[in-house]
């Protein structure tokens, strides 16, 4: 079966609505299908990746640690839009450090997050076969 390019477009902040959590569930299931997967974090979607999330007091499950497991599912193309981060007064230091291990290079640890401009991400998006938005 031909491999398709799937992009999961994440544009919503976590906890206030369920979209972030349920789209992460699709990514995890989708990983089993061996497609060419990338994730885009645009707009408020960048808030999904902040480190230090503590959710006990709002009575919801903290699902942010799951992002750091994506590398183990071969989901390692995680595009974060630079403009969205800057508009929100954030830098990469405010986000979780997501890594994956490259089997072809003796399991060298590599960064999964690619900080890209809106126009660079637009080019990546234009190459996709499927854009799943939530």
């Amino acid at each position: 079966m031909a491999v398709k390019k799937f992009m999961y477009v994440n544009r919503k902040a976590p906890y206030g609505t369920i979209y972030a959590l349920e789209s992460l569930e699709v990514v995890l299931i989708g990983a089993a299908f061996d497609q060419d997967v990338s994730l885009a974090f645009i707009g408020d979607g960048v808030y999904e990746l902040t480190k230090g999330q503590k959710t006990e007091a709002i009575g919801q499950k903290n699902f942010s640690p799951t992002y750091s497991a994506l590398g183990d599912y071969d989901v390692n193309k995680i595009y974060v839009e630079k403009e969205s981060l800057e508009e929100r007064g954030l830098t990469l230091d405010d986000l979780q450090h997501l890594v994956w291990e490259d089997e072809d290079e003796d399991w060298a640890e590599k960064d999964s997050i690619r900080l890209v401009s809106r126009s660079e991400l637009a080019d990546v998006m234009a190459e996709q076969d499927i854009c799943l938005s939530f």
Binding site: R11, R118, S119, A122, M125, A126, E127
Partner: peptide, 29 residues
């Protein structure tokens, strides 16, 4: 490859329209 973008929010209520324009390359709709 060409992309069709859909926007379903008022530009006065949400950033979707502005964000979409940032992603709409030549040849897209």
């Amino acid at each position: 490859m060409t992309l069709l973008h859909t926007v379903n929010k008022s530009p006065f209520e949400s950033m979707s329209f502005d964000t979409c324009l940032g992603y709409a390359k030549d040849g897209s709709t």
